[in-house]
């Protein structure tokens, strides 16, 4: 009897685990935040199922408040994200690799320098000492600042 119980519990645990892993894959891929929200809702439910499985195996009643709280958190989390969902820009859809990030940073730096050089030429009468050195980074535009040039990404890829 115990062996059969052990096997059954193992099978149930594996099923729950696989379901959760597949949902996490969707959370990584899913093109929008809402897809990710839905996938993580399933992960939370699998968590509840796993905790309930453990509680039934050990016959512990004191983990039941965990189940209540987890199911509430799952619901409130997905509702909150859905309530404040906004239109996302196209390039926010997936996590980029290190090479892509480096390439983007380089392209952004080049674009900033070109823009700085282009802007300084008409101001030659005011700032004479800077005309000869268009490559110097200006104080208010640090080269590595990701927030400053959010719209330049389109041309870089």
């Amino acid at each position: 009897m115990s062996a059969a119980l052990g096997v059954a519990v193992a099978v149930a645990a594996v099923l729950i685990l696989v379901g959760a892993v597949l949902a996490i894959v969707r959370a990584e891929r899913g093109p929008s935040m809402l897809d990710r929200t839905v996938a993580l809702d399933i992960v939370v439910t699998c968590l509840v199922a796993a905790v309930a499985l453990y509680a039934s195996l050990e016959r512990r009643a004191d983990v039941v408040p965990i189940l209540v709280v987890l199911s509430l958190v799952g619901f409130i989390g997905s509702v909150t994200i859905a309530r404040f969902a906004a239109v996302e820009p196209e390039d926010a859809r997936r996590v980029r690799t290190r090479e892509e990030v480096a390439a983007e940073d380089e392209a952004r730096l080049r674009a900033e320098l070109a823009e700085a050089a282009a802007r300084e030429v008409p101001d030659a009468t005011e700032d004479d000492e800077l005309v000869g050195d268009p490559a110097a980074p200006e104080d208010d535009q640090p080269a590595g600042d990701p927030a400053a040039r959010g719209s330049d990404d389109g041309g870089a890829r």
């Binding site: 729950i16 696989v18 379901g19 597949l22 439910t45 199922a49």
Partner: peptide
């Protein structure tokens, strides 16, 4: 429990 676990798996798929 097995039924519930199977449905969690189906939801993930």
């Amino acid at each position: 429990m097995l039924g519930g676990a199977f449905l969690c798996f189906a939801a993930g798929v």
